[in-house]
């Protein structure tokens, strides 16, 4: 739901002197699906983060598996890298199956 603090401009402040460090929570909603980022929480240690994630993010049967990771352990791309990172794949139309014309009467392809 919310982005990691590592994803904010003050990411370096994660785990301040006064509070517990921030963790990001990922839930696998059911078997066969990926873990999806659902939000964050504060915990003093990994196990506490896992238990708190269970209590906070799966109290309505939302999941079958949980990951938690310290927010400051996430390396994220920056908005300024958006163009060099993501533009180059925009013109590689030949990577998409619809690029190729196949006669309609050819089966199973």
């Amino acid at each position: 739901m919310t982005e990691s603090k590592a994803d904010s401009k003050a990411g370096s402040k994660a785990g301040s002197k006064t509070g517990w460090p921030l963790y990001e929570v990922f839930v696998r909603p059911r078997r066969g699906l990926n873990h999806v980022h659902v939000g964050s929480l504060h915990a003093a240690d990994d196990r506490m983060a896992l238990l708190a994630a269970r209590d906070l993010y799966t109290r309505r049967n939302e999941g079958v598996s949980l990951w938690v990771v310290r927010s400051d352990a996430i390396t994220a791309s920056t908005p300024d890298e958006r163009d060099p990172f993501f533009e180059p794949s925009g013109d590689k139309v030949y990577r998409h199956p619809t690029f190729y014309d196949i006669p309609e009467d050819v089966p199973h392809i």
Binding site: M1, P29, R30, L33, V38, T58, R60, N61, E62
Partner: peptide, 10 residues
């Protein structure tokens, strides 16, 4: 909905 994986099975 799918994004939040809001469970139903009680």
């Amino acid at each position: 909905e799918g994004r939040w994986a809001y469970g139903t099975g009680f």
